[in-house]
Design a binder for these strands. Structure first.
Lengths: 108, 108
DNA sequence: TTCGAATATGCCTTGACGAGAATATTCGAT
DNA sequence: ATCGAATATTCTCGTCAAGGCATATTCGAA
């Protein structure tokens, strides 16, 4: 999970992911679209591949990179555990106070 | 968005966020729980606060840090745009081919 | 107002990482 | 077998961020 965040924390990598959302693309196409040098693109793709955010499919001498949904699905699952935090916000005040009380006890 | 990812990409910061999911806590309590030196905790909390993942509420001489749902909600919205990627996976093969074709045209 | 607990800040060192440029590799076409 | 297009890898350099440590700050209590 942290690894996925790390991969997406790099602006250019994030842009690559966003671009791939519209479909698989070869390295060069990505570079031209995002105005990145080819070596950088390859390096970023390598990182994305290592965390499973991307997969490759050779096509002649070019390689098409495509998004892999798994890490995103996991991120979604992770987020689910926080969902209650933003749903039911009307009880915000109550919760704060409640938490402060609870906190005093389990303190250390 | 990228900033949020960057904040969560740091293992200890991630742990802090996970810990705060169960409620607000003062700096020391966090440090003890996660076995981190106090200065580190303060620094990490500063980063988390800067990206809006956390907010402070002074309480005597201690400061209670609490999760702020907003960035997580935004992350959820961002994820929504990718949801179709992992729902309806049975058409995986079709899509790949379809994408390859579409790709040939908008090429460059 | 002085002391001490809780927290924040500054400095330093070290390791990780991104960009650039050059070079290596792969593989189809001729 | 050779050439060239597409991609990967290597090396170097500069920057940035995390941890450790010392110190500053805040604020309630006595």
């Amino acid at each position: 999970m942290v690894e996925t965040f790390a991969a997406l924390a790099e602006p250019n990598r994030f842009r690559i992911v966003e671009l791939l959302r519209s479909g698989p693309r070869p390295v060069n196409a990505i570079g031209e679209r995002l105005e990145l040098r080819q070596p950088q693109v390859s390096k970023h793709l390598k990182v994305l591949k290592e965390v499973g955010l991307v997969e490759v499919e050779p096509r002649a001498q070019q390689r098409f990179y495509a998004l892999r949904p798994e890490p995103l699905r996991q991120m979604n699952e992770w987020l689910e555990r926080y969902r209650q935090l933003w749903e039911s916000r009307f009880e915000a005040m109550d919760e704060v106070l409640e938490e402060l009380a609870r906190q005093e006890e389990e303190e250390k």
